[in-house]
Structures are given as C-alpha cells and as structure tokens.
C-alpha cells in the first residue's frame, strides 16, 4: 500500500466506515443469537413446557437441576438420530462428490452436445426440495415408477415397499438427497477442473506422465481448495437434512429415517418438552462450534495454497 494512503486520517476514516459497514451484520447476528441463547440456557435447566401453563420467564419454578442434560446423555432416540444423521452424511456427501467428480471429468473438454447435457444435469437444483419430496414419495411406492423400472430391468414384477422398510426407506431418502445435490458438486468441481492451468498439464504430458499420474500429481493438488469448499458446503447443509426427507417419510417408518432435525421437530411440535429441546440445542451448539473452529482453520489453510 502506498504511503499516501497510510495517513492516520484515512486510517481513522477506514476504521469508522468499517465499523459502520459491519454493524448491520453484527446486529443481525446478535439479534438471532443473544435472546435465543440466553433463553435456551435458562429453560434448558427446567422442566418447562408450553403445556406447563407458565410463561417461559417463570420457568425457574420448574428447575430440575440439569436433569435434561442427564436425560439427553441417556436418550437412545437422540443418539440414534445423531448416528443416522452422520450415516446419511457419510454416504451422501462422498457419493455426491464422487459422482460429481466423475461427471465433471467427462465434461472437462469440449464435445458435441455438451451445453445441453450440462443444463439438463443441473436441473435438480432448481426443484424445490419439498416438491422433490412428493415426487420421490410417489416414485418409491410399491406400485410406483422405481419398481416399474426395476421390473423392466429384472424381467419380473418387482414390488419392493421402499418406504415401509426401515433400511430401504433410509436408502430411498439418501437417493433423493444424492439426486438433488450431485449437480451442485458437479457444478463446483467442473469449475475447478477447467481452471487447472493447461501449461502445467502439457509439461507433465511431455514428461511422459500417464492420465492417472496427471490427475493425482497436478489436477488434484490444484483442486484441493475447491474440493474442500464443495465438501464443506454439502457437509454443513446435509447435516440439517429435513425438507425432502420429512415429506417422504416423516422420519418413519417408526424412527428409521429420523435425523437430528426431524427428531427436534417432533419433540418440539408433538412432545412439547421445550426445556429438553433447549438442552439438545445447546449440546449441538457446543459440538458444532468446535466443528466450526476446525472448519475455519481448514478453510484458511486451503485458501493459502497458491493457485
């Protein structure tokens, strides 16, 4: 920066403007975290429920000395919902990544029909997830299109009751998620792939590197940042999976597809034990904060890699 711009006056002006520019965002963050955090901290140590007939501010009358937290530790349904959420994540995100990367590889150079194929492949992103939920609900009926296609392939009538079987229902909701979000991975990874400098590739080729070596030694390192970003976006969003899943199965059969968001939704709107929900929320907040700090570090390191 040139010395002309480093004057104290300009620096002060900058600091003042910076403060003013960040103020709206700070206010919004404070607005959405201060009250919710304090309120949840407060009611999380009580048995308070809207059914109790007390206003939430009077929740202290129902103080239960951290029983919600000990309950939480022993709440099998919560832990299995968490486990399920993680299972969905470790299946869906890598699947979306690998499919997206494979497609991106196929699209990385020009060929006839590329544009139209590309546009079609991005279409699932434009479908509202709730709508996708209804469509997949129908697709997976025992007399529905999926079984119809399977019947054609297998050459005999297939009548799998996808959504009525605990394992198959989980697979069905994962298929829906992969269908909807692979295009995003594809989009991002393709952008990364075509961004790899041509001259380095040429150089490697001249040195006799085969495609696999070129991929692992040049393309992958160059794409590291983008891969991390793509994975981070999907991990963050997939953890909260709700819309499509809830419409397809409502978390069922039983609790077979109940993820964290669905579980909290049910305890909030049906069981109405809000003190307990607050304890769940805070526990998640603590865990996620650790994840966030970790993610920040990763992102920062990823961005430092020279492009």
């Amino acid at each position: 920066m040139s010395t002309a711009l480093a004057t104290p006056a300009l620096r002060d002006e900058g600091a003042r403007l910076g403060f003013r520019l960040t103020l709206p965002a700070q206010i919004l963050v404070l607005f959405i975290s201060a009250f919710p955090l304090l309120m949840q901290l407060y009611i999380s140590v009580t048995d308070w429920s809207p059914l109790s007939g007390l206003g939430w501010w009077n929740a202290w009358e129902m103080w239960n000395s951290f029983a919600n937290y000990t309950d939480l530790a022993a709440d099998g349904r919560f832990w299995s919902a968490l486990k399920r959420t993680v299972i969905v994540m470790v299946v869906c995100v890598p699947a979306e990544f690998l499919l997206g990367l494979a497609l991106a590889t196929l699209f990385a150079d020009d060929f006839p029909g590329k544009r139209i194929f590309y546009s079609i492949l991005l279409m699932p992103m434009m479908v509202v997830p709730a709508v996708a939920g209804y469509m997949f609900f129908m697709l997976f009926q025992s007399g529905g299109p999926v079984n119809d296609i399977l019947s054609a392939i297998m050459g005999g009538p297939v009548t799998i009751a996808w959504l009525s079987d605990p394992t198959l229902a989980l697979i069905a909701v994962m298929i829906a998620d992969i269908w909807q979000w692979t295009p995003l991975m594809f989009l991002i990874l393709l952008a990364g792939l075509v961004g790899v400098p041509q001259d380095q590739i040429k150089a490697a080729t001249l040195l006799g590197a085969n495609p696999w070596q070129r991929f692992t030694s040049i393309v992958l390192p160059k794409m590291k940042t983008i891969i991390i970003i793509a994975l981070a976006i999907r991990v963050i969003e997939n953890f909260k999976i709700f819309d499509t899943l809830y419409i397809m199965t409502g978390g069922g059969p039983g609790v077979a597809t109940e993820t964290i968001s669905v579980y909290i939704y049910k305890v909030t709107t049906q069981d109405l034990i809000w003190g307990y929900v607050a304890a769940i929320a805070l526990a998640i907040l603590v865990v996620l904060s650790i994840v966030a700090v970790f993610a920040m570090k990763c992102m920062a390191r990823a961005r430092q890699v020279p492009a």
Binding site: A25, V29, I32, S33, F35, P36, M39, Q40, I236, F239, K240, F242, I260, S261, I264, Y265, T268, W274, V277, A278, I280, A281, I284, L285, L288, S289, V291, A292, V293, A295, M296
Partner: peptide, 18 residues
Amino acid sequence: LALIQLRLFPPMAVMIPV
C-alpha cells in the same frame, strides 16, 4: 466464525426462541 456457526446450526434447534 460467528457466521459459520450460524449456518452450521440447524434452524430447527432455535425455532422455539425464534
């Protein structure tokens, strides 16, 4: 950091105070 946390957090878990 605050905004990453905000995005990471499932909206369902703050819906009661909201």
